[in-house]
Design a protein around this nucleic acid. Structure first.
Lengths: 361, 361
DNA sequence: AGCGGAGATGTTAACGGTCACATAAGTGAC
DNA sequence: GTCACTTATGTGACCGTTAACATCTCCGCT
């Protein structure tokens, strides 16, 4: 199993890669001509161009991004500040979407992941991005702590955040999925099916999306004249959903099924819903017969949970695209303040996916 | 809901950021002194140093990475070629792990994601990375097509791949989880529980891990004198697991439970196992009573599947760390061919996680 | 023929760091 | 007092690219 580097020990000579001047010499032109070929300048004769191209090919020429960034004073790069990616479906999808959208617009994307939301970690990540001359930053770290900190940080590039609170006063432009609409759909669905005692299993209180969903849950219930129980807070993981489900069922261990103090739970994401369902089943409760459960996100697996999970789908791809559009617009305005402001409304509508985890009562 | 950029319309002036020369002027020293402060050079008087530091602070100085890369001829950056990240748990975790490990070693990581494995997409991604002067590349694209293509591509930096086949002749150094051991654990577990007719739901045939697990499945059954059914191929998704489960149960619709042509299925990942279980349940088959199912990966949700899934845990964090260690070692050798070769064995052992999806027969 | 303008190319100077080398002052040995 | 050596700092070139401006040629127009 040892992997001694095999025969192909090319001993990468680390020879200096060829520059436009090397190409120029070989092609018998000036380096500027090579640069022009590189950038598709119109006034280059075809013969010259093909000579240059041939030389590039022969020398395995590859333009240096560092040099290019240094010389024009722009990097064609946007930064992504990412918290908790990998652990969480939404943010992870969001980052991919932003990356793709950026590339599509001819921009590079550079990601700075942060493990904690400690102020120094955040400003270090921002410094990191800024030192790469990013022209703008997308904040995929939808936590109020991060956003409010950021609002104070001296920043000389535009920033945008997906999944933030559109109404927050942080001053950071925001593109977001309409969380309120998502929560409303869920509750209307539940209420229409006759549920009256609906619990909410929320995400951590300092996450924007968690806050919005919680507020929408409360508002919606109030509007319907139904009681809102104090929210339960999980940490987005299935494990936390399970734990909370356990305490919930233990607390009501004596009750017969008909007497449960709730008939439905709205979980703030699919993973917690999964854990919750697991806990219910362990306690002998059937979903949806005894309790209905709704999730949020529509992760690819939720169609195959047991029971298949009713949930809310968020279109992360278009969220990412909107974010990038807003950011690029802001960048454009910063360069040329005369430019007209693009529409900066950016709300993506979610979609209720009805499956089998909700029953009528 | 519109987000007109609020009052804080600082109209980022896009003023030229300050350079070491600006700092030098303000501090009354030469630019070189500033550079030395920046790099922690020993022979700088404390007074000078603090003057420079103060000037940096006042000017909001931030060193330009592009300039630094250009002037020393190295980027302190490794590239990551990532295929199918976001969609797949293993690769995604792997990328994160490599990033973390790189940062820990003082390197930056730059990710190039590819959507397809078409040759031009791959070489474009490699070009992209190379143009950033990456000093080495980690290939998180564990498909035979990618690796064999890469082996032929002219490359003047070291590369390493996690999740590749250690025995393959591609000539690419590989760090990997011991897939064979993982598959062996699964089958021994199943056989010990009395299973004799064990199916394998494999991943796409051009994925290294899928191949390795399939081969190990076949070898192990042969060794035990048991019949190996022709493998079923999914695409890693729960959807594909479900589809295959449906055809499987439809084909055996007439059979009573005791007459199923198999008693256990070894799925090549947890998602497919989930879809499979779903299909079984839809067909009235209970897991594990009627069929046992084992997965692979131990995604965080699998403890909360129903039934909780027996699976194989892979330690992606240490896989990433080993990869980076190997790569950095290779980079070091490329610079200084005299340097001794570090141990380049890099096999991470997996772990069987026994839960409730396997019954004895 | 002379002139203006466009097309194709060359020349030189940035960009913001680092490197190799030069310089100046201080320190101790003889 | 001078030499060798260290410490603290400055000077100028260089990395690979683009920007600004210069040059030269060819063309049509008057």
């Amino acid at each position: 199993m040892t992997v001694t580097e095999p025969s192909g020990d090319q001993a990468w000579p680390r020879r200096r890669p060829s520059s436009i001047r090397d190409v120029a010499r070989l092609a018998g032109v000036s380096h500027q001509t090579v640069s022009r070929v590189l950038n598709g300048h119109p006034s280059i004769r075809d013969v010259t161009k093909s000579r240059v191209l041939a030389a590039m090919d022969e020398l395995q020429f590859r333009p240096s991004r560092a040099a290019r960034i240094l010389s024009r004073q722009r990097s064609q790069t946007i930064g992504i500040l990412a918290a908790a990616v990998g652990a969480h479906y939404g943010p992870a999808r969001c980052v991919s979407a932003v990356e793709d959208a950026a590339r599509e617009q001819g921009y590079y994307a550079s990601i700075a992941r942060i493990g904690s939301v400690a102020p120094h970690a955040i400003s270090a990540a921002i410094e990191d991005l800024l030192s790469q001359d990013v022209e703008g930053i997308v904040i995929v770290a939808p936590r109020t702590t991060v956003l409010s900190l950021l609002a104070e940080l001296p920043m000389n590039v535009p920033i945008v955040a997906p999944q933030g609170d559109p109404r927050s006063a942080s001053g950071i432009p925001v593109a977001s999925v309409n969380q309120e609409a998502g929560a409303r759909m869920v509750l209307e669905h539940l209420i229409r099916r006759g549920h009256q005692r609906i619990l909410h299993l929320a995400g951590p209180p300092d996450w924007n999306d968690a806050q919005l969903r919680l507020r929408a849950y409360q508002a919606q219930l109030k509007e319907a004249g139904l009681p809102a129980s104090p929210p339960l807070f999980g940490d987005w993981t299935a494990d936390s959903g399970f734990e909370i489900g356990r305490t919930l069922t233990r607390a009501t261990a004596g009750c017969s099924r008909k007497e449960l103090p709730f008939t439905a739970v709205f979980a703030a994401n699919d993973q917690m819903a999964l854990g919750l369902i697991h806990a219910f089943r362990v306690a002998g409760l059937d979903v949806p017969r005894d309790v209905s459960v709704v999730g949020f996100d529509d992760i690819p697996e939720s169609a195959h949970f047991w029971p298949p999970l009713t949930t809310v789908r968020q279109d992360f791809a278009s969220l990412g695209a909107r974010c990038v559009a807003m950011l690029l617009d802001a960048i454009g305005r910063a360069e040329d303040p005369a430019a007209p402001q693009e529409s900066s409304s950016a709300v993506v509508e979610p979609q209720l996916i009805i499956r089998d985890s909700v029953a009528s009562v």
